[in-house]
């Protein structure tokens, strides 16, 4: 399994054709207290860069994009009753959704952890 990051502050764990997506710890810290997460429905086909989830904090709602093309297989239902998991465990139990990669899904624009750390250091 390999973890990648996007410039839009998502992380994506890729294991063969399966992937899990969440927002980074840096992103949850910037958002503040998360009060609601709107998750995509299973079976939805998404393209890379498409807005598929919404993370709401007290002050704002933010889009979360699909890092790669694929089909949504699962949303993290634990977030329905406990959206604050995104604050406390953004990069583990606070994952947002899983998807199956589309054929030929392009991972070349994604960053590894070192590149993402360098990226946020520049912001």
């Amino acid at each position: 399994m390999t973890r990648y990051f996007t410039k839009e502050h998502e992380w994506i764990d890729v294991d063969g054709n399966d992937a899990t997506v969440g927002i980074t710890d840096f992103a949850q810290n910037s958002l503040g207290d998360i009060t609601f997460v709107e998750l995509p429905e299973s079976g939805r086909a998404v393209t890379a860069g498409e807005a598929v989830a919404v993370v709401e904090s007290v002050k704002a709602a933010s889009d979360v994009y699909a890092p790669v093309a694929g089909t949504i297989t699962e949303g993290n239902t634990a977030l329905d009753g406990e959206p604050e998991l995104v604050n406390t465990a953004a990069e583990t139990d606070g994952w947002l959704f899983k998807l199956t990669l589309a054929d030929g899904a392009d991972l070349s624009d994604l960053m590894d952890e070192a590149a993402y750390k360098a990226y946020i250091a520049e912001l």
Binding site: L31, V54, A60
Partner: peptide, 18 residues
Amino acid sequence: MTEGAPDLVRICREARIV
């Protein structure tokens, strides 16, 4: 439709700058 939601990129940048 997610029109109108500020994206995380902007929120992170603002939070970082300030």
